[in-house]
Design a protein around this nucleic acid. Sequence first.
DNA 1: GCTTGACTCGTACGTCGTACCATACGATGA
DNA 2: TCATCGTATGGTACGACGTACGAGTCAAGC
Lengths: 231, 231
Amino acid sequence: MAAKRSGARSKRSPRIGEQQQPVQEPRNEPPLSRERIVATAVELLDAQGLDGLTMRRLADRLGSGVMSLYWHVDNKEDVFDLALDSVLEYRGPPQPIESQAWREKVFHMLEDWRASMLRHPWSASLLPRRALGPNILSRLELLSKILSSAGVADAGLNVAIWSLWNYVMGATITRASFDVSDDDRNAAQQRLTRLSERYPTIERSRLLLDNDWDGAFREGLGLLLDGLSPR
Amino acid sequence: MAAKRSGARSKRSPRIGEQQQPVQEPRNEPPLSRERIVATAVELLDAQGLDGLTMRRLADRLGSGVMSLYWHVDNKEDVFDLALDSVLEYRGPPQPIESQAWREKVFHMLEDWRASMLRHPWSASLLPRRALGPNILSRLELLSKILSSAGVADAGLNVAIWSLWNYVMGATITRASFDVSDDDRNAAQQRLTRLSERYPTIERSRLLLDNDWDGAFREGLGLLLDGLSPR
DNA sequence: GCTTGACTCGTACGTCGTACCATACGATGA
DNA sequence: TCATCGTATGGTACGACGTACGAGTCAAGC
């Protein structure tokens, strides 16, 4: 992922704080804006999945011509990047956690991360293929700060962060990709049953069904945090 | 992922064991076959990445017309499924491990899995979006058998399997997506440095650079296996 | 009135996956 | 010997895609 996109900000003037908004009411739709494009892209992705997002459909929903989008946005990849990051903002715990309780802080942030991605299942499989946006970096920064102030030595910091990242990503991507209709899941298990002479053990344990994903996630996360705790 | 594809076997006659091969030497290319298509698709994916695989390019490489592929293969998704699974075959450890050492067996299989995916970086980000092919199921079956015979109770078996799966997938997907050129990685870190007032901690620890991925992978896996061991 | 810059969008090009259909060829049976 | 049939190949064409290009609109400032 690293640095797939330059910081080129399309053709618009470089970020200016809050412009005036003239009397453009007569127009049926509000004017295009990067924000509106991104919000609509997220809607579309939620409704139709990764392949469902096309520039034409996006423009349709916005009531604009296709090429108008390109004034606000570099290209389709840009839309993906923006939609992805917009969905991963972290607002912190509802009420502040007492400052010693680093474990709770980490738990809350990572569970919230997972929940955010599961609310938008396309995001999980998209994230590893895209650049790290500001909201993701903020989460990493926060994680880094918490662990650091909890006493994790600098030497072990990166290992700790990446272990947690890997765990959350793996669990979430897997969960999101299994989060298809019951029909699909049953079909898969039935296919498995048909092959049960080849895969007797996983067939018997009904691996593809009825898993307590949330519980398993918390359990594994606890295990990992135990191991990563400063000794 | 579950059951995205039916088992429809394209239009070819249902699997027949080893057919005769008439004197078709005069032809410049060997005849098309599912196997040749898949092998060439893997080559193409290795060389050009996920977006580099198109049916036209694939046909070009095979010296055939595009539509001829569709005799052997349902559609492009089918090609992805087959290429993915073909890359994930497990041949077991070089010499058999004594039967008690379940930890070593698990370690070997999972490290081999990770290595296989890193040899074909496209596979890591593809896997969570596709159905589980026979080679993946075999790995899960093997894992299941090892853990089961090591004394993991049926109740905890699924949790254990998914925890390991999640960990391997997360670590590998992340690693594969960071496995871009040094230039890219440096550009990313420089972008980060430019924003260092916003992300001071991860900037200081040079999170995006110089990580011992392999070591971290083994370490985290050890942690997880400790936690999952039968008590 | 004229210029300028912000913004919109119709047209068009090249590429994609693949439906449809014509064809070729070896094996089979009359 | 010849008609038939299953296997296999691939040319043409269609609709959808991302987006380059350039013409258009409109308000603000001179």
